[in-house]
């Protein structure tokens, strides 16, 4: 099932349903029947100044799908997310989200469309309280009204009760796990169609990572939201995702169903140390 450089085959947006249904991961509740991908990257390359970081990246995320993007430190994962989010301009290639070409959109406009990023290192507004951070998450007002935002807030608190206990606490005084919780909750407050989460597990204890992933499981099940998880911890990512892409030195070198990648000799040796 493993294919090298899937980018050559993604054109035409025809993705076999079996790719999804064949997966027996813990998140396998998706019953997406949509034909067109929610997010589709085609031949994307970018970098900083003169330095190219990404070459010819093509990937897609279907409605209701959980996709992992894994790779070592410095492979270009965060650069890719920032390009999708519009913080960084692409040099070449196209990004299509929900049928709209967003390649040249500014970051704030992309967030308004429901393509939301939980950035690496949390990037909370440290001088503001949890609740203020969460309300800023709803800044685009995709919920539609103050009442809907208040309801979203209650829902997020229900999902992550610890945040409710500390709603008036400044976020710079929270522990790493609580900050990550708040960052994800802030992303959810935006009512995303697709949530990009950059390095959810970084610097957190395994039991906290489990809690967060369970919360994401629940959201995925209830909301039919799509996720693109960027992870250094390949094991965690592949256990949770339907499909995965492996990024190495700015190129996508492998892609396919997560279960297949988990079994793959190459992955086991390079990333799982077994």
């Amino acid at each position: 099932m493993l294919r090298r450089g899937e980018l050559n085959k993604t054109s035409g947006a025809r993705h076999k349903q079996s790719e999804l249904t064949g997966v027996k991961g813990p998140l396998d509740t998706s019953s997406s029947t949509q034909e067109k991908p929610l997010l589709e990257l085609h031949g994307l390359s970018t970098g900083y100044g003169e330095t190219q970081v990404l070459w010819d990246i093509s990937l897609h995320v279907m409605h209701g799908e959980v996709v992992a993007l894994v790779g070592a430190n410095g492979a270009g994962k965060s650069t890719l997310l920032n390009t999708i989010s519009g913080l960084l301009q692409s040099w070449e290639g196209t990004i299509v989200f929900a049928g709209r070409d967003i390649t040249r959109y500014r970051a704030e406009r992309i967030a308004k469309l429901g393509l939301v990023q939980v950035p690496q290192g949390r990037r909370l507004f440290g001088g503001l309280t949890i609740e203020e951070n969460l309300r800023l998450g709803a800044y685009t007002n995709r919920a539609g009204s103050a009442r809907a935002i208040a309801a979203d807030l209650e829902r997020v608190y229900m999902l992550l009760p610890k945040l409710c206990e500390r709603r008036k606490q400044l976020t710079h005084s929270l522990s790493g796990g609580e900050q990550q919780m708040c960052a994800i909750a802030r992303g959810l407050m935006a009512r995303p169609n697709l949530l990009l989460i950059d390095e959810l597990s970084l610097g957190l204890a395994p039991n906290i990572v489990d809690d967060l992933l369970t919360a994401i499981d629940n959201i995925h099940r209830q909301e039919k939201m799509s996720f693109l998880l960027v992870e250094q911890d390949v094991q965690i990512a592949l256990e949770r995702a339907h499909r995965a892409y492996v990024l190495e030195g700015g190129h996508i070198v492998l892609s396919g169903p997560a279960t297949d990648l988990l079994k793959s000799e190459k992955i086991r040796i390079a990333y799982l140390g077994a």
């Binding site: 989010s85 519009g86 913080l87 500014r106 970051a107 704030e108 967030a111 308004k112 939301v116 990023q117 950035p119 990037r123 909370l124 507004f125 440290g126 001088g127 503001l128 203020e132 309300r135 800023l136 998450g137 800044y139 685009t140 802030r186 935006a190």
Partner: peptide, 24 residues
């Protein structure tokens, strides 16, 4: 206020503010 908080957020972290959909 919403706009006041947006000002504080932009002052603290410009890129994170943009990810919230704030037009900086």
């Amino acid at each position: 206020t919403r706009e006041g908080n947006a000002i504080l957020a932009t002052g603290m972290d410009r890129d994170a503010a943009r990810l919230m959909g704030i037009n900086i």
